[in-house]
Computed example of a mutant assay.
Amino acid sequence: MDFTPRTAIVTASDSGIGRATAIALAGAGLDVGVTWHSDEDGANETAEEVRRLGRKAVVAQFDATDFDAVPGVITKLAEELGGLDVFVNNAGGGTGGPFLDLDLDGWRTVVALNLDGAFLGMHTAAKLMTERGTGGRIIAVTSVHGSQPRVGSAPYVASKHGLEGLVKTMAQELGDRGITVNSVAPGEIATPINDMEGDEAEKTHRPGIPIPRPGKPEEIADVIAFLASPASSYVTAATWVVDGGMLQMGPQAGSHLESDAWRRDG
């Protein structure tokens, strides 16, 4: 199958990794659907950047936890774009807190966003791609905590583990339809969710990371752009960790901790 991507939807592309991804895909020649949850101005700024690169941008509000609305929003964006070749599930997040302090509502809020909403978005995208019969790329932005836990983040960690499993199963079932499914697992990235802007990455020292700084949103977007491209035609069911080597520091970090503070602070 000769896969040449021309259209993409990037959820939560009003800032951070989502915005960088939308711009990277536009730079690769794709028209982009931009979504926002609460920052409409940010989404419009992303759309303007896409248009400056000579590509079409369409904008829609998107709430991954509004399960009745998710399929319709994605389908409408695809119609306005003239198809859907690439879907990037970037919407996600969640607050932390000690496990013993969690209640079911708090648990379900995070799982609904990171896992249920991701399922609905990627399911809708896969159906649209299958109906067209021209293949596609589905990419989920997960986290390093989809493979290693973090104290104080039980629902986030559990939902990201679940999302990684969903990606792998989708890849098994959709491969013969020309659709690849992969995940990108960022480490600490200089984005608003981490109370940083992209330009702060180079100014922030992280001694516990082999590349001793946070990542830049563009460094995640570049990997996503590869997975969205024809060059990744034989890559599926893979998790691409983009963390500056942080996950490899487990034993070193463990043996060098000098206090029990991590048990409380994560």
Rank of each mutant, 00 (worst) to 15 (best):
Ala43Gln: 10
Asn44Cys: 15
Thr46Ala: 05
Ala47Tyr: 03
Ala47Trp: 03
Glu49Val: 12
Leu53Asn: 03
Gly54Lys: 05
Gly54His: 07
Gly54Arg: 05
Arg55Pro: 01
Ala57Leu: 03
Ala57Asn: 09
Val58Gly: 13
Val59Met: 11
Gln61Ile: 08
Phe62Val: 03
Thr65Cys: 05
Ala69Pro: 00
Val70Asp: 10
Thr75Trp: 11
Ala78Gln: 02
Glu79Cys: 14
Glu79Met: 14
Leu81Asp: 01
Leu81Pro: 00
Leu84Met: 00
Leu84Pro: 06
Val88Cys: 05
Val88Met: 07
Asn90Tyr: 08
Asn90His: 12
Asn90Asp: 11
Ala91Trp: 08
Ala91Val: 04
Ala91Cys: 09
Ala91Leu: 03
Ala91Met: 07
Gly93Glu: 04
Gly94Lys: 02
Gly96His: 07
Gly97Leu: 04
Pro98Leu: 11
Leu102Pro: 07
Asp103Trp: 09
Leu104Met: 13
Thr109Gly: 06
Leu113Gln: 08
Asp116Leu: 04
Asp116Glu: 14
Gly117Arg: 00
Ala118Cys: 01
Leu120Pro: 07
Met122Ile: 03
His123Leu: 01
Thr124Ala: 06
Ala125Leu: 03
Lys127Asp: 10
Met129Cys: 13
Thr130Trp: 10
Glu131Ser: 03
Thr134Asn: 03
Gly135His: 00
Ile139Asp: 03
Thr142Asn: 13
Val144Trp: 05
Val144Gln: 06
Gly146Pro: 05
Gly146Tyr: 09
Val151Ala: 13
Gly152Trp: 05
Ser153Phe: 03
Ala154Gly: 08
Tyr156Pro: 10
Tyr156Gly: 12
Val157Glu: 05
Val157Trp: 02
Val157Ala: 03
Lys160Leu: 11
Leu163Ile: 09
Glu164Gly: 06
Leu166Cys: 07
Met170Pro: 02
Gln172His: 13
Gln172Leu: 15
Glu173Gly: 02
Glu173Thr: 04
Leu174Tyr: 08
Asp176Gly: 06
Asn182Tyr: 00
